[in-house]
């Protein structure tokens, strides 16, 4: 029984941490339709801003996280205003633009912060005992934050007037514009929101990982799989189910095989899902 519970907890932690990392992409790719190859760079930037907040400015970690979130949101806003907004009708151009943004940002990070590994001390060291199972305290907290961030965003989109506008925009951009919706402004806000979510994720993940110029890359491909497998535009259910398939299920396969095989099976599974449900698991045709 304890073994089963420990597996359930592992799966939950893996799923929710990946969901947090993928969420910014789910917003930008899912709602605005920009294939944001710069997502990894936004995560990296979040991690470095949090590190700089703690080490350089002497901020307490929670404040540094907020600082990183708004910092990256601002970068997202600037990116949207200067470049992306001129290319909404040309998705492949945005793919290249965001890729260029990724390369430039990574190199700037290397120049400013250097290529060395950086680290943030674990803000809540130690583990919590639950039914005889040790849960890493900080990872547990990050998983909870992940769930509440995703749930709150979903609530905003499904229960508020502002959310109705966004959904109208996704369904039919022209009609929404004809009905008086400020399309440009709404896109801008969503893009900044997505960037901010990536910044938050990068900052929160930073104490669990090595902070180096490639920290975001590790999550880039996985994030795309999460969004596409879960279904584009399904912020709550799609992100969670996608994260379970791409992240959480790995630990189940690892029970039966070694890590290399487990990771391979997961991506194989993703391909099979996309073959039979190319619209994603949650999208009804």
């Amino acid at each position: 029984m304890a073994e089963v519970l420990s597996i359930v907890i592992d799966v939950t932690l893996l799923t929710l941490v990946l969901a947090l990392a993928a969420f910014g992409l789910a917003i930008i790719f899912g709602l605005v339709g920009v294939i944001n190859m710069g997502h990894g760079a936004l995560l990296t930037l979040g991690a470095y801003l949090a590190w700089w907040g703690v080490e350089g400015l002497g901020l307490p970690f929670p404040i540094a996280v907020i600082f990183a979130t708004f910092g990256v949101a601002l970068v997202g806003l600037a990116l949207e205003h200067v470049l992306i907004r001129h290319f909404y009708d040309r998705p492949f151009d945005t793919l290249l633009l965001t890729w260029a943004f990724f390369i430039v940002t990574t190199e700037i990070i290397k120049l400013v912060f250097g290529p060395d590994f950086r680290n943030i001390a674990n803000p809540i060291a130690g583990a919590i005992e639950f039914q005889g199972i040790a849960i890493p305290a900080y990872r547990g907290l990050v998983a909870m934050i992940s769930l509440s961030v995703i749930a709150t965003t979903a609530l905003v989109i499904f229960k508020t007037t502002w959310g109705i506008r966004i959904r109208a925009l996704i369904q039919n951009r022209q009609v929404a514009a004809l009905l008086g919706l400020n399309v440009a402004q709404t896109y801008k806000v969503i893009f900044a929101l997505g960037a901010g979510a990536a910044g938050l994720a990068g900052a929160l993940i930073a104490p669990m990982m090595s902070i180096d110029p490639y920290i975001g890359n590790v999550f880039l491909v996985r994030s795309f799989f999460v969004v596409i497998v879960g279904g584009i535009g399904h912020l709550l259910g799609g992100t969670l189910i996608g994260s379970f398939l791409i992240g959480g299920s790995e630990t189940l396969f690892a029970l039966l095989s070694d890590q290399v095989v487990a990771q391979t099976i997961v991506f194989l599974l993703a391909i099979i899902v996309l073959r039979f449900r190319p619209q994603g698991l949650l999208t009804v045709k």
Partner: peptide, 10 residues
């Protein structure tokens, strides 16, 4: 480039 290690730790 494996980000999470839950199953190995177990």
């Amino acid at each position: 480039n494996t980000p999470q290690y839950e199953s190995v730790l177990r």
